[in-house]
Write a protein that binds this DNA or RNA. Structure first.
Lengths: 212, 212, 212, 212
DNA sequence: CATGAATGAGTTTTCATTCAT
DNA sequence: CATGAATGAAAACTCATTCAT
């Protein structure tokens, strides 16, 4: 890994912006399909119908584009969840919104999700500190949202106090990540509505306290 | 990938067996720590204090040792679960044994689990059909065990018939995989007893039907 | 051999063209001097004062540059002979032109000729179908030219009908190839004018004196 | 190339002799089929159903077995021709015996002939001085036999004095070598009786018909 | 004499990155 | 800004040769 030092942010023209976006999309597709290592700069610039120099005009390294993809996508993903959390509505309603939103995102950001696996398979030697930090932040914020949600629910009385909020958050995240993982391995689509229903059933009876 | 053609299985001496085992262990460590791509044959042979030729005496390629690791570990992992499934004991007891066993294995086979992430980050272009088939088999057998277990529980009346067995199996696997995934990302240990308790609580109330 | 799949032909700049040509010449020298196996990519790029990556920019493998050398040189060699064959001049004149041209070429394309030995020492396991096909085509076209020439001579009455055209063509080719072969083994130059004179004498009159 | 230094000749047991002979035959086949480089020690010992250590018991290196093959085969080949040359019979009879013997040998020593190509494709960097010297000796002795034969014929009046004996010998050898060469390239059998007849006709009478 | 596991220098090949145009 | 040829460090893989058993 080279060129991890700071570099003046470039002001891009409108055309530059659109080309950069194009390359980002192609890179997202390729990383998701082929993995980080197996995706070469050549693959990306060919998919974007441009030259290598162009790539290095926008990003300093392969790391850098990967980090940008993560940051962009995670940010919009997580901030949407944070917005739900901040809403002043009953926890039960939030529960539904939250899960609906996660479900939507799993479908909408299918490509992003594949990046998660890349991160996991990667290690500190392969990625620079920024990439690792970004991933940690994503998980921390996701956890924080869930923990707050659960604790509110417990305070409110809608979620059982028998369960530890920290652990439950971990289990939630596991389910989300694990589902995507199986999708990739088995090459099938587990994310259909029926699966959501089963999940809701389990959680409803498992952790929700029904008003008498 | 080269040399994927058939090749007579080598008969190894006792010393050869132990050296091969040594290299397998070192490779498992390295793949787990550094990832598949970032682990070089050089890393493996240096860790095993041997020459590159020795590696290629035992395996024909990097793929091949990876496949052997997967096959060996998955086999012992899954067959242990299959044995539990075959036992003629009450489903409730099986439930406990199954989860206990999975928990133990997650700890015992921590290194194996890391291989799962490698698989996920890998893709069909990188790995040969054997590796992909082995992984698929692993998941299929795991799913099959869980589905049988759930269906038995539903027949017996100990597991709610409100949930779809297929989907519930998928969720179970997600939780297991997802937990390991988070461990890796957050570099913490989520697999402590309290986490297990929370999980049991959720599942017990969520899907178990308590005898009146 | 890898990367034998189709790949878009690169458009080379003028400088690129000349550098590629430079490398081709160096490779021709080296293959001729040291043989195919004994010539390493390293040798070629060092001779061309460039990096290994440059080699792989122009060709996908060692095979590929070898095939290109063969194709290029054989093409110009054989097509010159074919042009003579097509001429509307007396067979006797063609005979002289043909042999003169072959003689010139043996000298001019000394390096090419060494490639023939490489081919012969090579076998179907080592070279891909393209290389073998190219060589076969060369010999077939060479034979075809000679057979046509002989048959025309026989029709015209300038060449004896006692000899089989096919066999005679084979013998001609043998002489040409065999001469080069000896040159290499003995490391001397047999291709001087006196040798040509002897050959013409033999063909013209034979060598045996019949008792009266 | 290593171990080219002198080494005490081993006294072999009867069993050792036969095993060595077996390996020599297998090596001859393999070198002929696959070429020198492409034939590995592993190939040879597998074909001989023995271990590598056994190979290195008999020969010090790959070079050494190759040299032994050359020496053995060439010796019996050339000495047979030398014996004909020494006979006190009319040159015309010798001619017939010589060509018959060469023809027989081309068929009998087909495998040996393939070694010639190996030598030619090889170069001084690849083979040690002994191998190169052996080949040179073979050609020199072959030439010497032919030159003596031709000169005797010229003295006797049965061969035209218009041709240079040295050059004619070279042409003879070229034909022999060239025929084998084409056989290999075209993968067909040119060495059938009709070919011999054509060759004899050419040599006897030439091929050109002089206008009256 | 025989075996085959072990070795490592030497080879081919890949690919992130640079830079002249 | 854009291009793509050039680079070389680093990786996978080969195979003649050695040597303990």
């Amino acid at each position: 890994m080279k060129n991890t030092g700071p570099k003046a942010k470039k002001k891009l023209t409108a055309k530059g912006q659109s080309r950069k976006k194009e390359l980002l999309e192609k890179a997202l597709d390729l990383f998701g399909e082929k993995g980080y290592h197996a995706t070469t700069i050549d693959d990306i610039v060919k998919a974007g119908a441009t030259g290598k120099g162009t790539f290095y005009w926008y990003w300093q390294s392969k790391d850098e584009i990967f980090l940008e993809l993560l940051s962009n996508k995670f940010e919009s993903y997580i901030s949407a969840l944070e917005n739900i959390q901040k809403m002043k509505i009953p926890t039960t309603d939030k529960l539904i919104m939250l899960f609906t939103e996660i479900g939507n995102m799993l479908i909408k950001y299918r490509k992003l999700c594949k990046l998660i696996y890349l991160l996991i398979s990667a290690n500190s030697d392969e990625f620079n500190a920024d990439v690792l930090k970004a991933t940690n932040d994503y998980y921390s914020r996701f956890r924080k949202i869930l923990i707050q949600f659960i604790q509110e629910g417990q305070k409110e009385g809608s979620i059982s106090r028998d369960v530890d909020a920290q652990h439950l958050a971990t289990i939630f995240i596991s389910i989300v990540d694990g589902l995507l993982l199986q999708e990739k391995v088995m090459n099938t689509n587990y994310l259909h509505p029926k699966m959501g229903e089963t999940l809701i059933t389990v959680l409803r009876k498992g952790i929700m306290i029904q008003p008498a």
